[in-house]
């Protein structure tokens, strides 16, 4: 794809992402919020692919959209209460919250522009899964395994907490 076409797609995706992300935090129906989170994360995957990270994009959809968000929808459907469906998502401190979010946003942008000067390569998407795999099971093996251990611990913890007391 030529630069103009890819930037066109990028801005289209970004606009949609902003709209859906704002929807997540402003919609009053929890279920709608979750659905717009689905849309937002799917678009993020699209952005990943656009940046040449095809594996990451697919993994994003597989794990977040196809897994975690389904569980979230599951929980909403199982624990539905009428009051949950019409909840204000802001409270009295929304001004402070907005200020805080802006501060973080600005510092993040500054940090990225300071550290990351490289722009993604243009042209065709180069496969990344092989190099990613080599990285995960070579150089990054220890952190990778540590993360999986933490997740396992979380899993076991969930089972322990979820057990019935009388069992």
């Amino acid at each position: 794809m030529s630069p103009s076409l890819s930037s066109l797609v990028f801005y289209a995706f970004s606009a949609m992402l902003v709209v859906t992300a704002v929807g997540v935090v402003t919609l009053r129906n929890v279920f709608y919020s979750a659905v717009s989170l689905v849309a937002a994360l799917t678009i993020v995957a699209g952005l990943f692919v656009l940046l040449g990270a095809d594996f990451l994009g697919a993994a994003q959809v597989l794990v977040y959209v196809g897994g975690i968000l389904i569980i979230m929808l599951f929980v909403i459907m199982l624990s539905q209460q009428p009051r949950d469906l019409l909840q204000r998502q802001t409270n009295d401190q929304w001004i402070a919250g907005l200020f805080f979010a802006l501060t973080i946003g600005v510092s993040l942008v500054r940090a990225f522009t300071y550290f990351v000067s490289q722009t993604p390569p243009d042209g065709d998407i180069a496969p990344t899964s092989a190099s990613l795999g080599r990285l995960l099971l070579g150089e990054m093996l220890l952190p990778f395994e540590a993360v999986s251990l933490i997740l396992l611990a979380a899993l076991v913890g969930a089972v322990v907490f979820g057990q019935e007391k009388n069992a």
Partner: peptide
């Protein structure tokens, strides 16, 4: 890709 995208149908 196929596994990921087909999972969206569950939603």
């Amino acid at each position: 890709f196929i596994f990921a995208v087909s999972g969206v149908s569950t939603i």
